[in-house]
Amino acid sequence: MKPASDLLMVDDNPADVALVCEALAANKHRSRLHSVGDGVEAMAFLNHRDKYANAIRPDLVILDLNLPKKDGLAVLTAMKAAPDLRQIPVVIFSTSLLRKDIVRSYDLGANCYVSKPGNLNDFFFAVKSMEEFWFGFVNLPPRGE
């Protein structure tokens, strides 16, 4: 069995974080969910700054687009420009279906774009399929130190 994976969810909606947590709890991959509520916190977590000095390097980032302080595309840009962070796969998980958001996300190096469904069952399905795909089959980049 693969070792447990760490997932960082960047989302300002606590209800969405709780739903993802619930969806993951029912699955077999034993993923650990870490969450932050805005883009500045996300960069602090990823760069081990301040209260995140001991934060783990996540295997996957699930990133909302509309975030306070620093939006999702700015976080994505910063991650892909940082040599030590650019290999971490980023899944954009957003309610936006705007073509410009989807194309811009890929353009900036997002690994995939999953629209956040409004319906509860569809939401659970999307989260489970993300987990199954990324933690069940994909070879994630080596963590390094």
Binding site: R99, V103, Y106, Y113, V114, S129, M130, F133
Partner: peptide
């Protein structure tokens, strides 16, 4: 995953 769950860029 890629053709159903994922939104491809258009």
């Amino acid at each position: 995953y890629w053709l159903v769950t994922n939104r491809p860029p258009i």
